[in-house]
Design a protein around this nucleic acid. Structure first.
Lengths: 357, 357
DNA sequence: ATGAAAGCGCTAACAC
DNA sequence: GTGTTAGCGCTTTCAT
C-alpha cells in the first residue's frame, strides 16, 4: 500500500496526497479531508525510506555510547529518545562496548543509514575513527573531548564546580586524609576530574599525598581494588572521592566485606549521580552530572547544526555544571582511621549541617 | 557520492558496481578488484534507504522495551544489538516508559521505518496496540504473553523451575513463614510468577497466609512499602521472595533503615538476576532469567520468521528456563522473627550447604 | 559477464 | 489549487 493507493481511492493525484500529509497549505480543505479519510481507513503510513531518499533528510540521529549496560548511559538514551520523539526524529543507538572495531562499525552503520548527526557519548575514543563522519560534514557533538571545528559541537563539563563542593564538604566534616580514586588516566575526562580534585584541595590548603591517589577504571571492581590498596596504608584515608559512582559503589561494597561502616568509619563521595546512587546502602553522596541535561544539550546541538545553513567556524560550545548532592555516605571524620575487620555499632550520623536533597 | 560516481571512476556500469558490492559471483575478478579499489578510495558506503526501497527489505528490527532506564532492559538491548551487528541488521529501540501513547507511537515509528520484525519486551501491554503490525504481517516476538498466531513467536518463561528452587532453598534453611511480594497483578507475568510461588509452596506442604502475599509494583519503592507492611504483622516473615530484583533491592534498602540485618534476621530472594544483583549489599540470591538468552531467542525468532516463506499457523514457541543463583542474602531462619529497630552483630552465615555460583 | 533500463515510494519543480 | 513528471540511489530483470 503506497501513496498511489491513497491517491487512487481519494481520486486525487499523488502530489495532493503528499501535500496533504506534509501540511502544505495550498490544499483545499475539502480535498484534504477526503485524503485524510482514506489515509485513516487504509491505515496508511508513509514510507520513511522513500521520503529520506528523495528529500535527502533521513530524520535519524546517531547516538554512540560506551556501553548501554553501564547505568550511566540509559538515562541519556532515554532523554535523547524523548527529544527525538518530540522532534520527529529516530535514534540509531549503538553501544561500542569499548571496542574500537565496534566503534568503527558504528560509524559505518551511521553513514550507511545517512544519519543527520551523531552524538558521541563515550568515555574514551580514537578521534580518527570519526574521520569518515567529518569528511561527510555530518554534525557531531562530543562530551568534553571534541575538537573545535565546523559542524562539531562540544559539551564541556565544569568538573571543578562540583568536585570543589565535594572536597569542601569533606573538609567541613573535619576530614584531612582525603583520597581520590580516578578513572583510567589514559582518558582525558578522567584526568580532568583528577585535576579538578587536586585544584580544589590546593585551594583550601589540604595536601594530597600521592599514595592517596589511586588510578581506578570506572568500574565497581576498580573501586574494590582501590579500597583494598588504600587500606594497606599505615594511615588510611577517612574520606574518599571517586571519579564515578560505580567506583564508589565498589568502595562501599568492599567496605562491607572489610567490616568498615559507611559513613561512620569512612566517608565516600561518588561522581555522576546515576539513579542507582539513591539506592545504595547508604544512599550515596555524589557529584551530579545530569544525564538528562547531557541528552538535552547534545540533542539540541545537533538540531541546531542541522538547521544551520552556514556552519560556524569553530562549532559550538555548551557548558554543563556539576554540583554536589548530599545523601548519607558522608559524615564527620572518625577519630581513628578505618581498619579492616572492625565492626561499629551505628553511631549518630552527621553531615555538618549541610542541606540534604 | 553515489553508485554512479563509483561506476564512472571504475569505468563500469552501476549494475556491475551493485553486483560487486553484493558479491554476485558472475563479476569478473578483474572488474571486481577495480570496483573495490574505487570504493575504498572514495570511502563509498551504499545508501541503505535506497537499498531498502528497492529491495523491500529494511534490515531493521524493532525492539520495544518498557523503559531502558530499568536495569533489566539494557542487557537485552545490548544482546540484541550484538546479534544485529553479526547479522547486518539495525535495531530501532524504543522505550515506552509505560505510556500506551508512547507504545502506539513506537508501533507507528516502526511501521514508518518498515522494520522487518519487532521484539516486544514489555511488562504490560494492550494487545490491540499491535494490530497495525499484525495486519501488515510484520513478524512479532513476545515474551510470555503473546497469542499463538502466524508470524508471531513467543518466548515462554518457565517460572516454576526457578521459583521452586527458591522456595525449597528457603525451606531447607528452616524458613516457615515465607512471604511473596508480587508485581502488579494486572500483569499476566506477575500473576504467573505468583502462581508459581503458590504451587511451589503447596508442593512442599507449606501454607501461605494471604497476609504474606503483598502486591508490589516491580519497583524499589514497592519493595520498601511491602516490607513496611510485612513488619506490621504480629509474626513477620523470616524469608521473602520478590517478583523481581528491584523489589528485592527495595526490601534490602528498607531493612537497612529498619535496622534489620540481611541475611541474619531476614532472608531475601529476588527474581531476574539483573547485573546489579551481584553488587548489592549483601549480594542478592535470586532467580535468574537470562537477559542475554531472552535477546538471543527473540532475535533468532524474528530472523527465522523473516526467512520463512510460509508462516506456520500458530507461530513458534520457545522456552526459557529460570534457575536459582545463590549469593549472600539468604541464611538459616532466625530463632525470633525480625523486628524493627534491632541491630544484630553479624552472625555466621549459612545457606544450607547449597552451592554458590 | 556486462550494460541498459525499469521502478521501489516519495518530494518538489514545473505546468496549467 | 492541482496534476504531471523528473528524479533520489539503488537492485533486478532483460538483452546482448
Amino acid at each position: 500500500m503506497s501513496i498511489h493507493e491513497v491517491a487512487r481511492r481519494a481520486r486525487v493525484s499523488i502530489a495532493t496526497v503528499s501535500r496533504t500529509i506534509n501540511g502544505v497549505p495550498t490544499v483545499t480543505p475539502q480535498l484534504s479531508r477526503r485524503v485524510w479519510k482514506v489515509i485513516e481507513e487504509l491505515g496508511y503510513y508513509p514510507n520513511t525510506q522513500a521520503r529520506a531518499l528523495v528529500s535527502g533528510r533521513s530524520r535519524i540521529f546517531g547516538l554512540i555510547v560506551s556501553e548501554i549496560t553501564n547505568p550511566f548511559f540509559p538515562e541519556i538514551v532515554q532523554g535523547f529518545e524523548d527529544l527525538a520523539v518530540q522532534h520527529n526524529y529516530e535514534i540509531l543507538t549503538t553501544s561500542t562496548v569499548h571496542d574500537p572495531k565496534r566503534m568503527a562499525l558504528s560509524v559505518r552503520r551511521m553513514i550507511e543509514r545517512r544519519v543527520e548527526g551523531v552524538a558521541i557519548v563515550t568515555f574514551g575514543m580514537e578521534e580518527e575513527l570519526f574521520d569518515d563522519l567529518k569528511s561527510r560534514q555530518v554534525p557531531l557533538v562530543f562530551i568534553d573531548v571534541g575538537p573545535s571545528l565546523p559542524r562539531m559541537s562540544n559539551i564541556r563539563i565544569d568538573y571543578l564546580h562540583g568536585i570543589r563542593q565535594a572536597v569542601q564538604h569533606l573538609a567541613a566534616l573535619r576530614h584531612e586524609r582525603i583520597a581520590f580514586i580516578s578513572g583510567p588516566l589514559a582518558l582525558k575526562t578522567a584526568v580532568a576530574r583528577q585535576r579538578a580534585f587536586l585544584q580544589a584541595m590546593e585551594e583550601i590548603g589540604l595536601p594530597v599525598e600521592s599514595k592517596y591517589q589511586i588510578e581506578g577504571n570506572h568500574t565497581m571492581e576498580g573501586g574494590i581494588e582501590a579500597l583494598k590498596k588504600l587500606l594497606t596504608l599505615p594511615k588510611s584515608p577517612t574520606g574518599i572521592i571517586c571519579s564515578n559512582d560505580m567506583t564508589a559503589i565498589g568502595v562501599m561494597r568492599q567496605s562491607y566485606e572489610e567490616g568498615i561502616t559507611i559513613p561512620d568509619d569512612l566517608s565516600v563521595i561518588g561522581f555522576d549521580d546515576i539513579r542507582l546512587a539513591q539506592f545504595t546502602i547508604p544512599p550515596l553522596t555524589t557529584v551530579k552530572m545530569s544525564q538528562t541535561e547531557i541528552a538535552r544539550l547534545a540533542f539540541h546541538a545537533l538540531l541546531a547544526e542541522v538547521q544551520r545553513k552556514m556552519p560556524s567556524l569553530n562549532g559550538s560550545e555548551y557548558i554543563l555544571r556539576t554540583s554536589l548532592v548530599l545523601r548519607d555516605s558522608t559524615a564527620m571524620a572518625p577519630k581513628s582511621p578505618p581498619q579492616r575487620g572492625r565492626r561499629h555499632s551505628p553511631s549518630v550520623r552527621g553531615n555538618g549541617g549541610a542541606l540534604r536533597e
